[in-house]
Design a protein around this nucleic acid. Structure first.
Length: 1211
RNA sequence: GGGUGUAUAGCUCAGUUGGUUAGAGCGCAGCCCUGAUAAGGCUGAGGUCCCAAGUUCGAGUCUUGGUACACCCA
């Protein structure tokens, strides 16, 4: 007996039950355990930050991250899913600042770095519960308990180790970086923050004269006309840029000679109301190298020959300005590039000219009249000064977008150079490109497109951040000599001679024992640690103050998640091979709820574990994040991995360390998700309320509805607009349709007592020695290097015999033990068809999923469920209603449907894991402990290749087409389906399947409610033929003649052409005097119903109805109308499916009385009536009904079971 | 300013190596079916496949140039 199915299904409620079941039974862990020793399928979790609320976009990411690991697990792989959290970075600091009501770095320092850091550490978990709840509720199976956390000590140390590799190989260096600088707050802003603060402002736009110098350094009477919108940068001028390929002109104006881009003369002349007379034109290249006198002389010295000259630059345009651009490399990234280029070109270490301090005020190097003043306030004075000296040619207002600090709206940002640490990634450009080449990107255009282009324009990675809450850059510097070294771990630091400063941390810990030990490797504690300099006696080594870009943290996760630090790969179980002293803080109780990522219990402790786990989980087979991670996590991972283990890297790992496999690494397949937009097509935003909280979606529609919407509605990489309606729609479109099939089965199986366990002689509880360990069925593709390979065995090919004590995934082979289970070949065509469809679907789904195409897989499943629900169940209902419980056809139907549902629940398990589990738990429960307790502990269905199936599929599609056409014809002729018709005639353009169709006409007869289906032997009576060219074949053969041939075919009658084809085996045409011969395969014959018949046609099929109604047919129709009316009434009075009734029908209509007399038994059978009387039933409420043209009074009463079971008719 | 993508029915989206009747779901209108049905079937209305040029016998599909939108970078 199956658990009865509730008529009113609530998916959210069922899902909550399933969640409880998973948790209580540890199903996720079991699903891993049963793949012990199986080849790994490696998944990396891109760490989200938990200090923001999750929204539906995150559901997409997490759903995609779930479906493939689930699928691969069912396919026989072991897929560990270690969760991770990204915890460092500016957003965390900002959150804390908000909480404290402070802004600037000064204020943070005043508040105290130590308490600030402690607050950051706590703040990281602010929305943790929401994230965990979302993760769990969505059904994302991931190991949250052992999540890696980027601020944990083991993680930080692993990052340090990697940085030390880079440092020791000379790949870390210090340089300048031009940043958007908030001078008042003393900090650089990230791109995201800058983007938030753009406002339209009017700034001065000035045209300044730079007099050219002659070879002796004397001023000439010709000046460059230079344009800038930031006059305050003029004192720091270093170059003037022109485009070498643009045409420039020498113009005269009131005795002055100016140089500017030719295309801009007119615009400037109009603006200034001057007449500029062109005296010469030439390419910009001619100007390159000319020296000029800068507008201020604060740096100008005669012996400097490399500054204050014209340089060529491709970024110069003639869209605005003068075509000659002022260059102050300190205050513009592009300008800075010019300086770098000049340094390279001259081989000189040209200084960076900068007379502005980090506070945004002019320094003493600046002209006296601006010293000590905020630069933006000086624009006017500078202009006035230039004017006084006759250097200002023109001045105007310029409207443009300019960034302001998003925290202090009145503060404009300035571009400013900062000392910064860089990683020499440019040196690895080719290797990164080679690595990229080997990655399977989905969609494919990412490889050559966004990601490839990004790699090609690679610049060195600006690694350092002048902030507080981040992984400290592990570089210590000699206070005397400035010499530096990198430290690869806390223990390494502690082992340094004369180490001191540990007391700061110890004091903090003593004061607050709940402080997580992980903080000891963070600021300010780590900054306090110093040691003896090896470079100068008595000097100390002190850490440099910077922390690192948190993208480096996340990019290091392939090894840092295991705390890997290049240890040798020892024997997994031998804890004695520890080669280094135990790490500080290892094994200490963590103060946070989350344990440190170093998990001693997992593999027995010891340094080998990290190496072993890294080795077995590198590289990833699969990762996925949204498009915005291209330059984020996708790049940081690829860059770090390439630098550490790229082909040519002198990998500084231990010689006995894990061998890193060939490219690509660290990931092989990557689905790049589109961004999810809000309901209004805008970015999702809390304030706009253009989306719903995930929690509400789960409560209202359920996680499966959301998941199915995400998987089945579009390829994952298209940007999708959040649509609540579409989520809602996935319920009736898919979940409910499938649910109805399931519910149908359960209702009738319970009525008839069909129990597959009893049938196979394996009742529930017969054996209790079940173990869920199954040998894995690897297919051998995509295995990680160094993975333990196990012999390829497929459990479904070798099922354990029923009753053998081993739990078997329920498969056809197992069902075959039942006496009532007939070989598929002996069953009805309909059953063979749906099982063939099932098989075909399994093949399609596995093929698609192996290609990481969830969308295609879902399409195949949808089609199957449609066939099952709207064709198989529909056409099989009569078999379920048969009175004989053990009828062969009925048992066939049960077995067929049961098998379909069991396999479907396995098939959908990765996609809609809750629904699948609900089905499974009820359908498989009759086997008790002999079946896996969860569908997620099953192997994925395995497709059998069957050539006959394709043909059957094609034929059944034809049957469905004929039925559909018949219904269309009925509709047009206003002949409702309940009215039986004598016959339909079917005309087929191709007789290929006709014989088969004739054998299986019963399905059509049933569906169309006709007495006979005939395949017309005189098609000309009903149809006309049309002969069309096969363009694909003929296009090549005929070329330009093609349209003429089509015309010729159009003009001739189809019948003639067909006769031609029949008699000669070909069609002969004459086109433009040329003889053209068309072979049968080169034409397509289409048929169309002739007018005047109740007929419909499509795709080579015409169905013609016989519309003649005899009194016999009419009465039969009335009987069906009567049944319908009675069934409705049964429902109304609340009869159960199996309740028997008595019927009284009172009517004056002769024809209706005759109908009851003739068809009373039929009516009684259909409606489970013991009697159909023409007298009113006493005590039953009468209902007036209309049957055809007749009216009647219907009375119905439920009768007790004990009443005579044999239906009788009393006229 | 540069790069990458997207543009197909009222809405959300498919559309294979170029092949001549461009599809699905939802929504709308009508009819039908129904003791698994919150379903389903049939029909109808609804299309400048963003625009223009080109290649081709043939273009939603390929090429070029535009336009609009999104994202990334500047």
């Amino acid at each position: 007996m199956f658990q009865p199915v509730d008529g009113q299904v609530s998916f959210p409620r069922l899902e909550e039950e399933v969640l409880r079941f998973w948790k209580e039974q540890g199903i996720y862990q079991q699903s891993l355990d049963r793949r012990d020793g199986a080849p790994p399928f490696v998944f990396y979790e891109g760490p989200p930050t938990a200090n923001g609320m999750p929204h539906p976009g995150h559901c997409l990411t997490r759903a995609i991250k779930d479906v493939f690991p689930r699928y691969k697990t069912m396919r026989g792989y072991r897929c560990e899913r270690k969760a991770g959290w990204d915890t460092h970075g500016l957003p965390v600091e900002v959150e804390v600042c908000k909480e404290l009501g402070i802004h600037s770095k000064e204020e943070i320092e005043a508040y105290g770095v130590e308490p600030f850091i402690q607050k950051c550490q706590k703040s990281v978990w602010r929305y943790m519960q929401e994230w965990e709840r979302l993760t769990e509720r969505l059904g994302f199976w991931v190991n949250l308990d052992e999540a890696y956390v980027t601020y944990h000590q083991s993680y930080v140390e692993s990052v340090w180790w990697s940085l030390k590799q880079l440092f020791d190989r000379g790949l870390l260096y210090q340089g300048h970086k031009i940043v958007w600088w908030w001078a008042q707050g003393g900090t650089a802003l990230s791109a995201g923050e800058v983007g938030q603060g753009y406002r339209q402002v009017a700034d001065p736009s000035v045209y300044v004269k730079f007099p050219l110098l002659d070879d002796d350094g004397n001023e000439t009477d010709t000046s460059l006309l230079v344009w800038t919108t930031t006059p305050w940068t003029l004192p720091s001028n270093q170059f003037a840029a022109v485009h070498p390929d643009i045409e420039y002109a020498k113009v005269e104006d009131e005795g002055e000679t100016l140089l500017l881009a030719k295309d801009l003369i007119e615009a400037i002349a109009t603006k200034t109301k001057k007449t500029l007379k062109v005296v010469d034109t030439f390419l910009g290249a001619k100007l390159v190298g000319r020296r000029y006198k800068p507008p201020f002389n604060c740096y100008h010295a005669r012996n400097r020959t490399h500054e204050w000259q014209v340089v060529g630059a491709k970024f110069v345009t003639t869209e605005s300005g003068s075509g000659v651009v002022h260059q102050a490399p300190a205050f513009g990234e592009v300008d800075y590039e010019v300086l770098v280029d000049q340094r390279q070109a001259t081989g000189q270490d040209l200084p960076l000219i900068n007379c502005v301090g980090p506070d945004g005020k002019f320094t003493d190097e600046a002209p006296e009249f601006v010293r000590g003043r905020w630069v933006k306030d000086c624009d006017k004075d500078i202009n006035r000064n230039l004017k006084e000296r006759g250097l200002l040619f023109h001045q105007e207002q310029y409207l443009h977008d300019y960034p302001f600090c998003w925290r202090a709206e009145e503060d404009p940002l300035i571009q400013y150079p900062r000392e910064s640490w860089f990683i020499r990634t440019t040196q690895f450009k080719d290797q990164m490109l080679a690595n990229n080449e080997a990655i399977n990107w989905l969609p494919g255009h990412i490889k050559e497109g966004r990601f490839g282009k990004f790699l090609e324009s690679n610049v060195d990675w600006a690694l350092s951040r002048e902030r507080y809450w981040g992984t400290p850059l592990p570089i210590w510097q000699c206070e005397a000599t400035g010499q530096q070294e990198a430290i690869g771990g806390y223990d390494e630091l502690l082992a340094k001679p004369g180490v001191a400063g540990l007391d700061v941390w110890q004091a903090a810990k003593a004061a607050d024992p709940t402080l997580p030990d992980d903080l000891c490797v963070h600021k300010p504690y780590i900054d306090a640690v110093t040691y003896d300099s090896p470079h100068k006696p008595g000097a100390r080594m002190r850490r440099i103050p910077e922390v690192i870009d948190c993208w480096y943290d996340s990019g290091a996760m392939p090894f840092a998640q295991w705390g890997y630090r290049g240890e040798p790969l020892g024997k997994p179980d031998d804890g004695s091979t520890k080669s280094s002293p135990p790490r500080q803080g290892e094994g200490a109780t963590r103060a946070t709820a989350k344990s440190s990522s170093a998990n001693p219990s997992a593999l027995g402790g010891g340094e080998n574990d990290a190496a072993a786990r890294f080795a077995s989980q590198f590289p990833a087979d699969f990762i996925s994040e949204a498009l915005d991670q291209t330059r984020g996590w996708f790049y940081s991972q690829l860059a770090i991995s390439t630098m550490l283990w790229g082909e040519a890297a002198e990998a500084n790992t231990h010689p006995a360390g894990p061998k890193v496999p060939a490219l690509p690494h660290p990931f092989r397949n990557c689905i790049v998700l589109g961004l999810m937009l809000g309901e209004d097509g805008q970015k999702m935003s809390k304030s706009k309320r253009n989306y719903r909280e995930p929690r509400e979606i789960f409560d209202k529609y359920g996680a499966d509805a959301l998941r199915w919407y995400l998987f089945a509605n579009q390829p994952p990489w298209t940007s999708i607009r959040y649509s609540e309606q579409a989520i809602k729609d996935s319920i009736p479109e898919f979940l409910l349709r499938l649910w109805n099939c399931y519910s149908f089965f359960v209702i009738y199986a319970n009525i008839d007592g069909f129990d597959p366990a009893v049938e196979t002689g394996a009742e529930a509880g017969a054996t209790e020695t079940a173990s869920n360990k199954n040998p894995p069925p690897p297919q051998g593709e995509g295995l990680g290097e160094g993975a333990t390979r196990v012999p390829a065995t497929d459990p479904s090919a070798n099922p354990a015999p029923p009753g053998a004590g081993e739990a078997t995934p329920l498969t056809a082979a197992q069902f075959a033990a039942a006496k009532s289970y007939r070989p598929v070949a002996e069953r009805d065509e309909l059953d063979r068809w749906i099982l063939a469809e099932l098989n075909r679907t399994v093949a399609a789904v596995t093929e698609r999923m192996d290609a990481y195409d969830n969308f295609g897989a879902c399409a195949a499943i949808t089609e199957f469920v449609d066939g099952l629900s709207n064709w198989w169940v529909r056409r099989s209902r009569e078999r379920f209603w048969a009175k004989e419980k053990r009828a062969t056809e009925k048992l066939d139907a049960y077995w067929t449907l049961y098998e379909c549902l069991i396999e479907t629940s396995k098939l959908i398990a990765p996609f809609t894991p809750f629904l699948a589990e609900t089905f499974w738990r009820n359908l498989a429960s009759v086997f008790g402990a002999r079946a896996p307790q969860s569908v997620h502990l099953c192997d994925y269905p395995h497709a059998e290749v069957d050539l006959a199936a394709a043909e059957l599929s094609e034929r059944m599609a034809l049957v469905r087409l004929i039925a559909s056409l018949g219904l269309r014809a009925r509709n047009e002729a206003s002949l409702k389906v309940r009215q039986p018709l004598a016959k339909v005639e079917v005309v087929l353009a191709s007789t290929e399947h006709q014989a088969w169709l004739e054998e299986h006409r019963a399905v059509i007869e049933g569906e169309l409610n006709v007495k006979a289906v005939e395949f017309s032997d005189e098609p000309d009576k009903y149809v006309e033929h049309e002969v069309l060219p096969n363009f694909k074949l003929l296009g090549k053969k005929l070329g330009k003649l093609m349209p003429k041939v089509k015309q010729a075919l159009d003009q001739q009658s189809g019948a003639e052409l067909l006769a031609n084809l029949r008699d000669n085996g070909r069609i002969n045409l004459s086109v433009e005097g040329q003889a053209v011969e068309l072979l049968p395969e080169e034409v397509e014959v289409r048929i169309k119903a002739k007018p005047g018949w109740a007929a419909a046609n499509d795709r080579g099929v015409v169905v013609v109805l016989s519309t003649e109604l005899t009194p016999v047919l009419v009465r039969e129709g009335l009987a069906r109308d009567l049944v319908r009316a009675i069934q409705d009434r049964r429902k109304e009075i609340g009869c159960d499916f199996t309740d028997r009734i008595a019927i009284g029908l009172v009517t004056d209509s002769e024809i209706l009385r005759k109908t009851v007399a003739e068809h009373g038994t039929y009516v009684a059978n259909e409606t489970l009536a013991n009697e159909v009387s023409l007298e009113p039933l006493p005590g039953a409420e009468a209902l007036a009904i209309q049957i055809g043209d007749a009216t009647a009074q219907l009375t119905i009463r439920a009768v007790p079971i004990s009443a005579a079971p044999i239906p009788s008719v009393k006229p």
